[in-house]
Simulated assay, not measured.
Amino acid sequence: MKTLAILVLCSLAVICLTSDASTGSQPAGDNPAQEGLFVEREEASTVVRQKRAAGELSPTQLESLREVCEANLACEHKMDIDGIIAAYTAYYGPIPY
């Protein structure tokens, strides 16, 4: 196991050294690492994951909404008729995730 860890660390070191050598010939203005930590809002919005729409909830998230709604008989009845998302939104407001 120790041999595998040493082999992985050595391969990472080689990759880092070779990637630095290949980018060393670029002008300083083309290197994104030297530009700083701040980016434009449009660029950041493409990188940062957007909040998912209500219809794209995972099965675990839907189950947690269902458990909350089952405690209220009116919400449970609406859940059977209109669906879990409509029932939860009607009785408890916007979905928290």
Rank of each mutant, 00 (worst) to 15 (best):
Q50D: 12
E76L: 09
R41Q: 08
C10T: 04
A90M: 06
P59T: 04
R52P: 01
D82R: 07
K2M: 13
Y91M: 01
D80I: 01
G36W: 12
A54Q: 06
L65M: 06
A28S: 14
I6Y: 09
D30A: 14
P27S: 14
I81N: 07
C75K: 06
I6F: 13
D20Q: 10
M79V: 00
A28N: 08
L37S: 15
A71S: 07
H77V: 03
S25P: 00
Q34A: 08
Q34C: 07
Y97Q: 02
V39N: 05
K2L: 15
D20N: 09
V8P: 02
G36M: 10
L4T: 06
L9P: 04
S64K: 14
L9T: 08
C16D: 07
P96W: 09
P32K: 08
A44H: 06
T18W: 04
A90G: 04
L7W: 06
G29C: 14
L62M: 13
M79G: 00
V47D: 02
Q26W: 07
T18D: 00
A44W: 12
D20R: 15
K51Y: 06
L62I: 15
A21Y: 11
S11H: 03
K2I: 10
V68I: 06
L57N: 05
C69V: 02
V48H: 05
D82S: 11
Y91P: 00
E70S: 12
A53N: 13
A90Q: 11
S64L: 11
T23I: 10
A53D: 15
Q34N: 13
R41F: 12
G93K: 10
D30W: 14
T18I: 02
I84G: 05
E67N: 05
C69E: 01
